[in-house]
Design a protein around this nucleic acid. Structure first.
Length: 316
DNA sequence: AATTGTTGCAACCGCGACTAG
DNA sequence: ACTAGTCGCGGTTGCAACAAT
């Protein structure tokens, strides 16, 4: 049937030439794209608006991250896919600079095969031979939430609980039981390979005006851009080995009893390491009043800090 | 070196949702 | 309430590059 926007005129199809790219970039960066259907005409392109939009979103946008996916990104894709299924746009929202198309292609070409070769069901990330009643319950839950707002409204609030409903032991990732203390922003969840649980998440306290937490929320609370704020006792970093051979134990950062680690990134983080990969390596970790340290922390160190924090704040 | 098979990814297609008139 | 235009999404296709024979 062809696109509504282009079946009247003759349009070019197939791969974009560098000249076409240049025209589109020049036009969009100058005038924006209020209406894609008018872009090709005004930009002097013999393409349909839809094709222009796709080319811009998937390839020409300046904020795109090129190159291969990191292990962290891969893990995020697997985990979010496990929750929402083939909703690539939703998954891509958790991966700044990645497009839904890219995520979809990566899933189909790499992750799917990898999971199958590991004996995992790519649809659930669970062991194929061990379907659980809870998985079925979760699937029903997912299906009943067909609209796109679900991930924002339900997943963010109830992600930990949903995760806990689904046994992931067979995939080697144990989901942690929810515990009272809070730590991370809504876009985060915490679980570990086989280690002691980290707290599950909620942001109520963090964003409720509690001065302790509010004092460290300078970054804009943008959708998907919430800062990760943690209060950790600096002393706990001493001697903390980082799995990526970086160490975050700078005693010069230990000026106060309670240092602030303000990790501002895209707001999706992992409470504990995946397969030995440091959990926060994707964040720029900035010790307040100190030079920025880009690094990660060991799972053990984070756990100790979290426990310490919990003790400090909640007496648990 | 030539042919065939495989892979990764850019682009297309069709549908549903949304919106303005 | 209805319609047409547009947008956004997920599934699919086509093809270039690479690997295997």
């Amino acid at each position: 049937m062809g696109h509504h926007c282009c079946n009247k005129q003759k349009v070019r199809r197939g791969l974009w030439s560098p000249e076409e790219d240049e025209k589109l970039i020049r036009y969009v960066t100058t005038y924006g794209h209020r209406c894609w259907s008018s872009v090709p005409k005004e930009a002097g392109l013999q393409r349909c608006g839809k094709s222009c939009r796709l080319r811009w979103i998937n390839y020409l946008r300046p904020d795109l991250k090129r190159g291969s996916f990191s292990p962290q990104e891969e893990r995020i894709i697997i985990d979010v896919h496990n929750l929402v299924g083939n909703r690539w746009a939703q998954i891509a929202k958790h991966l700044p600079g990645r497009t839904d198309n890219e995520v979809k292609n990566y899933w189909n070409s790499c992750i799917k095969k990898k999971l199958v070769s590991q004996g995992l069901d790519p649809n659930t990330d669970n062991n194929i031979s061990l379907p659980s009643a809870n998985s079925t319950a979760l699937m029903r839950e997912k299906q009943s939430c067909a609209n796109n707002t679900w991930i924002e409204s339900r997943e963010m609030r109830e992600l930990p609980q949903l995760l806990n409903q689904e046994s992931r032991a067979s995939s080697g990732f144990a989901i942690l039981p929810p515990t009272p203390p809070i730590l991370f922003s809504t876009h985060m969840r915490a679980f570990s390979l086989s280690e002691t649980p980290l707290p599950c998440l909620s942001t109520e306290k963090e964003w409720s005006g509690n001065s302790l937490w509010a004092s460290n929320t300078e970054a804009a609370d943008l959708e998907g851009q919430r800062p990760l704020s943690m209060f950790l006792e600096a002393a706990d970093f001493d001697g903390c080995n980082d799995t990526n051979s970086n160490r975050v134990n700078n005693s010069s950062n230990s000026e106060s009893d309670l240092s602030v680690v303000n990790a501002q990134s895209f707001g999706y983080g992992y409470g504990c390491g995946y397969g030995g990969v440091s959990p926060f390596e994707q964040f720029d970790v900035d010790f307040m009043g100190s030079p920025t340290v880009t690094s990660g922390f060991s799972s053990q160190g984070i756990l100790r800090n979290v426990r310490s924090l919990d003790q400090h704040l909640w007496g648990t």
